[in-house]
Amino acid sequence: MPRSPRAAATAVLAFGLVAAAPAPGSEPVVTDARVVAHFDLAAGRTPENIALERDGSADLTFASARQVARVAPDGRTRVLATLPAVADPATPLVGSAVVTGIARAQDGTLYVNYATGTAATGIWRLSPTGGAPERIAALPADGLPNGLALDERRGVLYAADSVRGTVWRVPRAGGTATAWAVGEALEPLRAPSASGFGANGIKVHRDAVWVSHTGRGALLRIPVGADGAAGPVETRATGLEGIDDFAFPGQGRSVLAALNSGSRVVLVRPDGAVVTVLTARDGLSNPTSVAVRGRTVYVPSAAYSTGRDPNLLLARLRQLVDHR
């Protein structure tokens, strides 16, 4: 969730509804946190979103640098691609051109959202064999495509627009974007003190599209009908102030969510209970997203408001949760 200075200032919110860490004597859900890579804030290497490679490497979008990079398990980092510069970028809420969400296909193809405030805004594809990034779908220049998710079974991509309150659906091969889900539940709050960010992170999980709403501090679920249409938006959790992107650590409905403004990662259980599992003491600095592979948890931090140490943190999932 790239931040303008104003948005960063307004995003420091109260966390009264979020549960505290586990009670003394209980076993922590996540342990052995360690930062494996530090990034150059001055160079715009602010990691916004993450996808995982089969060897455990992490593909990151560096929002402000307009780059996609790969971080090996030992922390070595190499830039895979840089999105083309645009003249006079005017991305809503941000001002600059930023690379946001990322999704990886089984064949190694990477898809990223590029928000510019110009005609270059859209979903771009990076071939696993190399070459220049290619735009496969245009998205509105006055929006902010943020989270990105791929449903390979249905052959579609979903992009969450933080400004227009829309989930866009695009054929994986490219083509015209369709407003798949819209409505008040996805729109940013209109209060003067609001951050301006609505729908943000997005995942496809068990015949539904899940979306985080930053302004509402909520986790939403949108069923996918047999015909591919969006069902009614369901609120599955609230009190998640500053929520950015998230991941499912199991096959059930428990979620690990990055709370950007509070530099925390929390576990949201199916009954709505929330437990803090990682904090700034572990190395988080405005975490933006979460990924899970087996028992390894990956958390990039962009340092948007802290201004300190954008990084990639790895930790161990001590217990697999919610397999149902």
Score class of each variant (00 low, 15 high):
Gly165Tyr: 08
Lys203Ser: 13
Trp168Ala: 05
Thr214Asp: 08
Ala177Tyr: 04
Leu278Trp: 09
Phe246Met: 11
Val204Tyr: 14
Arg216Trp: 01
Val268Ala: 14
Ser195Tyr: 00
Phe246His: 10
Gly231Ser: 04
Glu234Leu: 11
Val224Lys: 00
Phe246Asn: 10
Pro270Ala: 13
Pro188Met: 13
Gly239Glu: 08
Leu267Arg: 15
Val211Gln: 09
Arg264Ser: 09
Ala194Asn: 00
Leu240Pro: 11
Pro287Glu: 06
Ala247Val: 07
Ser212Asn: 13
Ala159His: 02
Ala191Trp: 00
Val268Phe: 15
Leu240Arg: 10
Gly250Lys: 05
Thr279Ile: 11
Arg164His: 01
Arg264Glu: 15
Ser285Glu: 15
Gly242Ser: 04
Arg281Asp: 15
Pro249Tyr: 08
Ala218Glu: 13
Leu186Ser: 04
Ala179Lys: 03
Val163Asp: 05
Ser193Asn: 14
Leu189Asn: 09
Ala208Asn: 05
Phe246Lys: 12
Arg253Leu: 13
Ser162Gln: 05
Ser212Glu: 10
Leu157Arg: 02
Ala273Val: 14
Ala199Glu: 10
Ser195Leu: 12
Glu184Arg: 15
Leu240His: 07
Phe197Arg: 07
Ser162Asp: 06
Arg190Lys: 15
Gly196Lys: 08
Thr176Ile: 04
Leu240Ala: 12
Gly239Pro: 10
Pro249Leu: 08
Leu267Tyr: 13
Ala237Trp: 07
Leu256Cys: 14
Ile202Met: 07
Asp161Tyr: 08
Lys203Val: 14
Arg253Ala: 14
Ser261Ala: 13
Arg154Trp: 08
Leu219Ser: 11
Gly252Lys: 07
Ala273Arg: 15
Arg164Pro: 09
Val224Gln: 08
Val209Trp: 11
Trp210Gly: 02
Thr235Glu: 15
Arg216Met: 04
Val163Cys: 04
Ala173Arg: 00
Leu278Asn: 11
Gly252Pro: 07
Gln251Thr: 12
Ala160Ser: 11
Phe248Cys: 06
Trp168Asn: 06
Ser212Tyr: 08
Ser162Cys: 03
Ala280Cys: 06
Thr235Cys: 12
